[in-house]
Structure formats: C-alpha cells, structure tokens
Design a protein around this nucleic acid. Structure first.
Lengths: 122, 122
DNA sequence: CTGACTGCAAAAGCTTTGCAGAGCC
DNA sequence: GGCTCTGCAAAGCTTTTGCAGTCAG
C-alpha cells in the first residue's frame, strides 16, 4: 500500500466487483465500467485487479476455462461451478459443514496454497 | 469409446502423463514426447488431452496461472501449490484427514463441480 | 475403403507490457 | 515536481482450428 495512489479507475473497479455476487472476468468488469467511464482501458482493469490482489482486497479464482475470475468477497467460502451453464455460486462454510449444498455436486476439487517444505528450508 | 481409434501419439501422451508425478502443461508434455517422437505436433497433444479428458482417463486442473495442467491420477486426492516455486504436490485424502500436510498451508480453495439447481429443473 | 487422426500453420482468445502523457500528493 | 497511474496499441502466451494428407480397422 505504501506506493498506492487513489485513482478513480481503481475505485470504480473495486466498487464494481464489490457490488456483484457473480465472479466476473476482467473483460466483464471492463465492459461494465465502460458504461459509466467510457475512456477506461482494458489494460488498466488488468493492472488494477493485480494491484488489488496484491493488497489483499480481491482474490483470483480460476476454474477449468482458462479465464481468471475475480472475487471481492474475502471471507472464507467455497465455490460451486455448474458444468452446464458455467454459473459460479458462493458456498458458505456453514452450509458446507452441514453438507447442505443446494446443487448436485459431482466432484470436489481442493487446492491448498502456501510455501512448500523445499522453499521453506532455503 | 465408440468412435475412438488407437494411435501411437495418443498412447505416448497417456503413457507420458501416467509415468509422471508432477502435473505438466500441454507444452511440457509435448516437449517431452518430442524427444522420442520428433514429428508429433502440439496441436495433436492438445487434441488428445481433450479426448482423454472426455474419456475420463485424465483430468484438467487449473490454478491461478492461466495454464491448464493435466493429471492422470484419477483417484480422489487434493493438491498443494507452492506460491514460491509453483510446484504442485499431490495430497492424499488420508493425509488430509490428519491435517498432516507437510507443507505450510496458508489458504485453501474448494471448488465443487456439478449441475446447479436451475439447470436440473430445465 | 472409410473416417478418425495427424502435422502444419494460421487464427483466436486472454493477459501483459512499452511508451508517452496525465494526474495525484 | 516527482512518481504513480492511465490510455493506447502492440506483443506474448496458451489453446483452438482449418486443411490436406495419413493410417488404423
């Protein structure tokens, strides 16, 4: 944050993402913001999403479609992806505990992120 | 596989993936196979990996790096991704039960795949 | 023979980056 | 005024696709 400066573009991007419950791609955010801020460029959207990620205000999520989706909900939660319509739903952890997911789950993918043993020893 | 035909290329791709414990990208598989089968093309690798996925012999896994990784281990297991060296480790479910993962986990990402309510009702 | 498969190369996404100019502090 | 940020456009990467020829069954 030390070298971060306020810009209306960055505010618009964060605001847009926080007002949504879906998990848009950079391009979807860009198209949406362009309606009210016609001069914004796609490169700016990508650059700011990266900064917001580094600042911990936004997270990237990626599924099997080679597109990075963004999520401003930083609370601990899971995701459900429909293989038919490709919608992405948030799954609250409490729901998860109850095994009470309202969709038909076929497979579960779990990915841990962190620092591996080899890197820690360096 | 009604309309599937044997080809040495497909066998080489599946064999290569099954002999590995890492989770290579299509390009890594291509480069590796090219050593013993110099005429194989990258397009063929992509096409066959897709077929093998459709047949349930291989699965795609994607993390936050915009590259699709392939995994021939179809048993139920999780993955650990090192944010420093980007290595991918398999995490066996039994290990998971014991919370006995040998790396330093910072975040966990859980994604369910299936058919959502809306699509089921159609 | 037939039709699925291959190699090649071009095209098609999505994302990153260089540059010159603009704007926040 | 300095340094970060922006818009634009080009470049970069991964992946897909069209086509004509090849090969398994």
């Amino acid at each position: 944050m030390a070298t971060s400066r306020y810009s209306s573009q960055r505010a618009a991007i964060l605001g847009n993402l926080q007002s949504r419950i879906d998990h848009p791609s950079a391009d979807v955010i860009y198209t949406d913001i362009k309606k009210t801020m016609p001069t914004i460029s796609l490169g700016t959207v990508y650059r700011n999403l990266q900064v917001l990620c580094d600042n911990g205000q936004v997270r990237k999520i990626s599924f099997s479609d080679q597109i990075v989706h963004y999520d401003a909900n930083m609370a601990n939660h899971h995701h459900f992806v429909c293989k038919k319509c490709h919608s992405i739903y948030d799954i609250e952890i409490s729901t998860f505990q109850n095994e009470n997911i309202e969709h038909s789950v076929e497979t579960v993918e779990v990915v841990y992120h962190g620092i591996c043993n080899a890197c820690q020893e360096k």
